[in-house]
């Protein structure tokens, strides 16, 4: 890690595991779950949040000394809203079908608690380079969970990944379907997103006992 000191590297690596925004900090769940029925949508959502949080953290960090603390929430909201409008317009221009699938959830990145949370907790008190790394790290931690959930929901729910059938053809009964496997349509419904995240939390905390909390 020539470019990054050990401390800087931790800014990126910590949120991926032991300080994950979704499973440990409980931030940003709102927009995370509704769009994970397909892997592609999860990946696009993750990339959007990486862009918004990375750039947003830099902007807020640059302005941290000139923002009056009384109106900082509004300033932060305007910064995020502007970035999200950019994301939304880019998606509409280059991936129109996908932006229809994501519908209002692109807009909801604005109120994604991860973003406001990192602005408040980190970017307002730290330099530009560190804030950038922190933003990227947390957005990656968010993206990882999104992609894991999207992967299992699409694989078990429709037997495809990124729209490509990987388990065989359910109609012609090839691949796994020839031995009687059926798609679990339940995985595509919204409640299963919650249960999959619950299971991820369960596995993570079984591996790292320090994370277990009181009832």
């Amino acid at each position: 890690m020539g470019l990054l000191s050990k401390k800087d590297a931790n800014l990126i690596l910590d949120p991926l595991t032991d300080n994950n925004p979704i499973t440990i900090q409980v931030l940003g769940i709102c927009s995370a779950l509704a769009i994970t029925a397909e892997l592609e949508a999860s990946i696009v959502m993750a990339i959007s949040v990486i862009f918004v949080l990375g750039v947003g953290n830099v902007v807020i960090s640059l302005m941290r000394n000139i923002i009056p603390s009384k109106i900082r929430i509004i300033v932060q909201l305007i910064v995020v809203a502007t970035l999200v409008i950019i994301v939304d317009l880019v998606l509409k221009a280059f991936a129109y079908e996908l932006s229809k699938t994501l519908s209002v959830f692109v807009g909801l990145i604005i109120t994604n608690c991860i973003i406001m949370g990192r602005f408040e907790a980190f970017a307002l008190g730290n330099g530009v380079w560190k804030s950038f790394l922190d933003g990227i790290g947390n957005a990656l931690g968010y993206g990882v969970i999104l992609i894991i959930v999207g992967f299992f929901r699409e694989l078990l729910g429709s037997g495809t990944l990124l729209g490509i059938p990987v388990l065989g053809d359910p109609i012609a009964k090839t691949g796994l379907y020839s031995i009687g496997y059926e798609n679990n349509g339940f995985m595509l419904l919204s409640p299963m997103a919650l249960i999959v995240v619950g299971i991820i939390i369960w596995i993570q905390r079984t591996k790292n006992k320090a994370l277990i909390e009181d009832n």
């Binding site: 919204s190 919650l194 995240v197 619950g198 939390i201 596995i203 905390r205 277990i212 909390e213 009181d214």
Partner: peptide, 26 residues
């Protein structure tokens, strides 16, 4: 109420809340 139940340790707090919410959503 669930505070008095014997939830597996790694599921306590956040994990079980997620799963209950999922069941309620169903």
């Amino acid at each position: 109420k669930i505070r008095y139940s014997n939830v597996p340790a790694p599921l306590r707090g956040l994990g079980i809340t997620f799963i209950i919410t999922g069941l309620m959503a169903i």
